[in-house]
Design a protein around this nucleic acid. Structure first.
Lengths: 332, 332
DNA sequence: ATCATGTGTGCACACGATTACACAGATGCA
DNA sequence: TGCATCTGTGTAATCGTGTGCACACATGAT
């Protein structure tokens, strides 16, 4: 019984064992279907005895519903996304949905991967990555009717999206930095020019413009600690800035380390460093980062809400807007 | 054509469009099957035109191979595992295998989740979590013949495992700490008593025993930064230890912060702090942790190797052993 | 011309479940 | 009793592919 690798038993075989038809087996496993109380109990007992469980692949084929959800992410290790991924996976599993992770550095590989996932007839698609074009996604997943998307809105009946508004929080942060006397601002991008990167940058750019200021320097990293470290050295040394707005928290930590270690500058006195995301690590004692943070729970609540509407078959593209708040630390 | 949500076209419909039978369609998509060169080209052209792709669910049902792989993990955000998860996901995808993530805090929920995944006829199972009993795993996945397992070896024809040996590295690390004059050692566990936690602890315990020493204190965290911080305060204040061996790197960072911030102690002078895992963050300038590290690439190579043997149908339980090495930082 | 061989295609069934439909028996009501 | 209604079960079709078998045709050797 335990550990032996017999072939899995099928519904037809179980039917013979229980002295019923395979249709009745199926009914015993469907919560609300016409079946006698006694019959169901007997079948479930026999099923337990022989370790029977309905084959989800066969069921999916018949149902036209796979209960699989594709999650397209930039990276699994990346803390910025990991916390949200973790939450979402839990929420999905509570709804008996299984997440398939699609994660790819290269662009054409990513499209290939999305096509592969689409052949598995996934019921929903959640796109965390800012590297994928929504139009590509729509083209590939045009059968799973609406697709759930973070960030990038697209005028398409099949796309629901979550919009993020960080302008008020950025304004509050810039306000404090300016009052502290900082004058030369730099923006440290996470990618060359993704949709979300431009959006985040614009919040701060507008806050600066309102005060007659602008970014005096611009650097491009790749969202990693190392790139934050390296670019910060350049910004501080070459451009002599005294405030760095980073595209995410991890690069901000790298920048802080660079300022402290390589150039002997301290925050917030010599230089202000601002993160974005509000990951747990930002609040660690050794970091204590000032950051524009998004409520991860609210974000995932929104994703789940969109998935539920999709599941319920409510028509039309949906959109939910979330606003960010500042987290005040000792780096600004 | 783009973004419209027509129903996906089936092989039978495409057959009609291309003027062949559905069997021929199938053959056009199977790399080595007897089909005329010209016919295949024509079919592929028509398929591209109508956006046809074979339905993987139906294929899985027929094939008895789903090309799905279940990954059982403790947490997605957890950096200790995330780097390996990331690597593995890439390697799987290169082999056209799709990873399903199973991630659960609660024990009975986890079993439930594994049962759910098993109904999807996953081809392989990789268990990263030290919280799941191998016997449970074997019972649940007894149809997917061998299952791939990290860490815990189990005498079972269906289980292949990867063994980790950190004894030599632990010995080298203890050697240095003892020479530095440290005398009172504490072990900071990540879980109450998981298999891997006991194993890791034993490497250091033996190294101490060899020198006539032993752990004088023991604390239990949960692999998180916060628990490392909290438990370290107790260990340093109550037990007056001067060396802490942590079950992973993240808790070690928490312990270091606690020592520095709450009690004003510095490493490695006042106290030695040792991590385990060798995650990228350990090498960040702000951390520079001394840690017993495992080569993640080699680890994932081993996992993939086991999966390939499984795929190739090579019988028998397999096992691969990896050895750890020390990473020297400024915390010991 | 005959036969062996090889190539390309269609037919029909299998994979393991769900479900519309039909039907037998029980129940209720007049 | 006669008829309508409801309950529980079986039959058979269906979901979309893959593949063994049969067969038609082309090729080549004798």
């Amino acid at each position: 019984m335990s550990g032996t690798n017999k072939r899995r038993i099928t519904s037809k075989e179980l039917a013979k064992l229980a002295g019923v038809s395979s249709a009745t087996i199926s009914r015993a496993f469907s919560p609300d279907s016409r079946i006698g109380r006694a019959t169901r109990d007997r079948i479930l007992a026999v099923a337990r005895e022989y370790g029977y469980q309905p084959n989800a692949i066969a069921r999916s084929l018949n149902n036209q519903r796979s209960r699989l959800v594709a999650l397209v992410v930039n990276a699994i290790g990346n803390p910025c996304e990991a916390e949200e991924q973790q939450l979402l996976v839990h929420r999905l599993q509570a709804r008996q949905l299984l997440p398939i992770i699609l994660c790819c550095a290269d662009h054409s590989d990513r499209l290939q991967l999305m096509r592969l996932a689409s052949t598995y007839q996934v019921d929903h698609v959640v796109i965390f990555s800012d590297m994928v074009s929504m139009q590509d996604a729509v083209d590939i997943f045009h059968t799973t009717k609406p697709i759930i998307v973070s960030f990038e809105p697209l005028e398409n009946e099949n796309v629901s999206s979550i919009r993020i508004d960080g302008s008020a929080a950025a304004d509050a942060i810039i306000d404090k930095i300016v009052r502290d006397g900082k004058k030369r601002f730099a923006y440290l991008s996470g990618t060359n020019s993704s949709w979300i990167d431009k959006l985040r940058r614009s919040w701060f750019a507008e806050a600066l413009a309102k005060r007659g200021l602008a970014f005096e320097a611009q650097a491009f990293g790749d969202y990693s600690y190392d790139s934050g470290f390296k670019e910060a050295v350049l910004l501080l040394h070459r451009d002599k800035v005294d405030a760095i707005i980073s595209g995410n928290d991890v690069m901000a930590i790298g920048a802080r380390d660079a300022a402290r270690r390589v150039l002997g500058r301290n925050t917030p006195g010599d230089i202000a460093i601002i993160g974005q995301d509000g990951i747990a690590m930002a609040a660690w004692d050794c970091n204590d980062l000032t950051t524009l943070s998004l409520d991860h729970v609210a974000f995932i609540d929104a994703v789940v809400e969109l998935i539920e509407r999709h599941d319920a078959g409510i028509e039309g593209p949906h959109s939910i807007t979330l606003t960010c708040t500042p987290r005040w630390g000792s780096t600004a």
